[in-house]
Simulated scan of single mutants.
Amino acid sequence: MELVQISEHVYRLTYETVVGIPIKINTWYVVDGGGVYLIDTGMEDYADTQLNAAKFLGAPKSILLTHGHLDHIDGAKYLKNNLNIPIYAHEAEIPFINGEKPYPNKAEKEITGVKHQVEGLSDNIIKTLPLDVYLTPGHTPGHVIYHHKSDNVLLTGDLFFSNAESLHPPIRKFTVSMGENINSGRIIDEIKPSIISSSHGEDVKYNNDLYSVYKFIYE
């Protein structure tokens, strides 16, 4: 497990676990003054480490989810209970987080542990954040990414998997619409971030060919 500062205000916590297959999971902490925002929570087994990292960096303010899949939300119940902070996700994601209906590509409803405890990312909430929020549907209907404008770091959840030089699509069986997901990825050419940090993989430095190569290979 490793906590790395990837820019002035953004830290990444990385660990490896098994979610059907061995996988690397990244979650993030965005420091803003004396406060810190948690981006995704990873698995519950590592929630205590998440909590300690957040407290080390500042006063935890809220949990911001990219989406509601287990490897992004499983630690949310523990963190919310121990930090007494709100959890936010895109409004389109909340019915799935609440278990009101299954994701379109799944037969069973999600059991997140935070049913009816996640609030929508309203415009008023977003205005208070040190991050811009972009809806990037495809992997899930309400998947979002977070951009730290002054550091120019983009936290992309499962919009991509990544290695140090290239982008790859998320796992198909967990993705509602791969075509829509690939189309959502074009947002990186609008934002042009210095660093793209995905939930599964290594950080990538942006270049003008990054998305076009990804689209050509995988579309």
Score class of each variant (00 low, 15 high):
108 E>W: 07
143 H>F: 00
62 S>E: 10
110 E>M: 15
30 V>G: 01
42 G>A: 07
143 H>Q: 12
191 I>T: 04
151 D>N: 04
138 G>L: 05
95 P>M: 05
195 I>H: 03
173 K>E: 14
213 V>Y: 09
105 N>M: 01
201 G>N: 01
25 I>L: 12
122 S>D: 11
174 F>T: 04
104 P>A: 11
1 M>T: 08
136 T>D: 05
66 T>D: 01
188 I>H: 02
177 S>K: 11
168 H>Y: 15
149 K>L: 01
109 K>G: 03
190 E>I: 08
45 D>F: 09
144 V>F: 12
9 H>A: 14
56 F>Q: 15
213 V>M: 05
38 L>N: 07
162 S>P: 07
32 D>S: 13
50 Q>F: 11
205 K>I: 10
56 F>A: 14
141 P>E: 08
167 L>Y: 06
140 T>N: 10
30 V>H: 03
68 G>D: 12
52 N>V: 04
181 N>T: 12
175 T>I: 05
45 D>T: 13
63 I>K: 04
7 S>R: 00
31 V>P: 01
217 I>D: 07
35 G>C: 02
136 T>H: 08
117 Q>A: 15
97 I>N: 03
162 S>G: 11
215 K>E: 15
65 L>T: 01
172 R>S: 14
81 N>F: 00
79 L>E: 09
192 K>G: 07
136 T>R: 05
28 W>G: 11
114 V>Q: 09
82 N>G: 10
133 V>N: 10
33 G>R: 02
200 H>E: 08
36 V>F: 05
118 V>E: 04
35 G>I: 00
185 G>A: 10
61 K>F: 01
22 P>N: 07
155 L>V: 10
28 W>P: 06
185 G>L: 06
139 H>W: 10
40 D>P: 00
213 V>C: 01
18 V>A: 11
113 G>F: 08
8 E>T: 14
173 K>L: 11
181 N>P: 00
201 G>E: 04
187 I>D: 09
207 N>E: 06
122 S>V: 08
181 N>H: 03
73 I>L: 07
46 Y>A: 00
131 L>W: 01
97 I>Y: 04
196 I>F: 10
